[in-house]
Design a protein around this nucleic acid. Sequence first.
DNA 1: TAAACGATTCTTTTT
DNA 2: GAATCGTTTA
Length: 776
Amino acid sequence: MSSNPNRLSISQMAAARPPAAAGEATYLSGLNPEQREAVLHTDGPLLVLAGAGTGKTRVLTTRLAHIIATKKAWPSQTLTVTFTNKAAREMRERALKLIGPDGEGLRWLGTFHSISAQILRQHAELVGLKSSFTILDTDDQVRLCKQIIQAENIDPKRWTPRFLASLIDGWKNRALTPDRVPSEDAHMFADGKGIKCYEIYQNRLKVLNACDFGDLLVHNITLFRENPDVLKDYHARFKYILVDEYQDTNVAQYLWLRMLAQGNHNICCVGDDDQSIYGWRGAEVDNILRFEKDFAGAKVIRLERNYRSTRHILAAASSVISHNRSRLGKTLFVGDDSDADLVDAEKVKVRGLWDGEAESRLIADDIESWVRAGGKHDDCAVLARASWQMRAFEERFIMLGIPYRVIGGPRFFERAEIRDAMAYLRLIRSPDDDLAFERVVNEPKRGVGNTTLAKLQAYARADGRSLYTLTPMVLQTDEIKGGAKRGLTVFIDQLNMWRDKYANGLPHTELAEVILEESGYTDMLQKDRSPQAQTRLDNLKELVRSMGEFDTLAGFLEHVELVMDASSGGAGEDQVQILTLHGAKGLEWPMVFLPGWEEEVFPSRRSLDESGLKGLEEERRLAYVGITRARARAYISFVANRQIYGRWQSVMPSRFVDELPHEHVDAMSETGFSGLPGGEEAFSGTMEDLGARSSYDSPGWKRLQENASRTPSRPPGEAGPLAATSGGTSAFKTGSRVFHDKFGYGKVAFSEGNKLTVDFDKTGRKKVIATFVTAA
DNA sequence: TAAACGATTCTTTTT
DNA sequence: GAATCGTTTA
């Protein structure tokens, strides 16, 4: 495979580059003609339609390097927008390797949201905000909506806060401020009250000096619309605009780009309509179809040579996606057909199993044989439609000691304890942040219940002032008595004290420690005997640690609000990756497992219910993304029985299975039900080898095995398996010594529910289930 | 006010 | 099956 120049890694390229290159730039070597054209065509609008694995990121980073190397612009005069933080990071790294230290000035490389936040901070007053505005997350949005629904006397069961929030989000995705929402949209919520609620919502945000994610873009657009001179400044600043994953942009993002590009028209968008998988979030595939019309004189370049996958994988992906009706139509072909590895590879495997357990067992076995044959865990990825499907694999991998990493998952900054701590910090920065106030006024418990809070809110609303300003005034009266009064007094006093300390130069990390200590939050967790309490304390420690990476409290808060991403530790280890199909976009592995290809699961039932044919086509694009992540081997599987919402259901193979091309697929089934047209004869293999093992895999055998390892390891007097699984009293603290039947003695590195990460003395770091170890 | 219980709903996917 | 929500009870 490495015979192909396109497989050269960027670091190799950088190493090969002579210092201060003269003549033909070396960064251009190894590009195919289309890629090269996309890099060199710097001036005027350009749309690059790049299929999966055709070197899209490489084109984008090389183009950036080219613009800078030829001095067409300084790094600070280029604007590069991505969709996710992950993509932004990768882009920056790769670009820096090409450009060298000159690239340090790439301050306008980031996500739509981070860049528009940067711009908005500069000009906040022009849209009626203070530059210190808070950025609310989904949770805050929903809580705000709930308050509005209550205040408007709308039945929250019929019209849920969540629905209102998503409606508002939808409008913002289309760049519609309340005055621009078409009146027919009003009927979508509570008998025409939708727009009114939206107005109230926006007014509340203004009072709170806050934005939600959608606002960042919408305010930018308003800002540019109403202040042509400001827009002009940015026209002068951004000589070249580069956009990644253009197919994922929504209307607001499109308008934002178009306004910025009006200056000098040097905009280059890279995208693939077949990989548009964010329609549910307002992405408009139309943006990509309209490009030529909206940007006069636009050039379009197609990248169709795929350097990633074998011909069987490409054929499988192409066949599935060809069932979509609305697409621009690209054909992927093997970029280098002299590469025997890509041409004479093994076919895509499709396998039908009895149930989810059999599926995870089979996949785990495949990974073990791959590793036994000299492969790495790192080479393997399991791509699931939804995160609930991941647990089965985690459990199986833990049982077998296969190292793995879940990517995505419940995120650090969305955990309750972190959000609580953040709320305290937000209150220090901006005391009028009512949402933060409400969150922590009774956390830990201060005797301030719902009735008290409702009273305060009523006053605050009548008065148009914040809870923080108003509470001391109410405390002067006899309106609130007893425990609630004492609690509130302490709370307000403490807030003032912390603010003083911070104002007098207490570093923000120490401030956080002081708050957690003095508020009683740490105490509360230490007294908590539930299994998660220790994890939570550890998370808070981690929070304080990560604050240290920022110079100021404001800088830290901005980072968290926007990036919501703990500095990803643990990468680079040899682990199988488990992630969602959405999370997998842009990544690739030699060996990819695609489990759960069943109707209702994938395509997801909800997607079909909500969006019909459009939803189905998006699911199909998701299948396309999944298959094209694989370089050498792709394993698709489906089961006959699956537990959904805790109930066993028999399920049908996904229609996408039918859409795979027979001649490129090896199919086999444990259940006799293929899902492939043509029935049994369509199968070129059997599950015989699987069947031979099955005597070890009966439920009875498994239970026997579990009991064997659990029973002797339980100290006398300790609760039995029942309590261990339901009560979860077995939480081991970080640092405690434990013993495991298979791995011996070790120290707990951290724990999460019933899963422990243990540093074993002999075998190193492993993840184990808590019930399999005892205190040592 | 808060804890404890029972009913309900739910899960995509992410900035 | 779990987590959230709302009601009841101490």
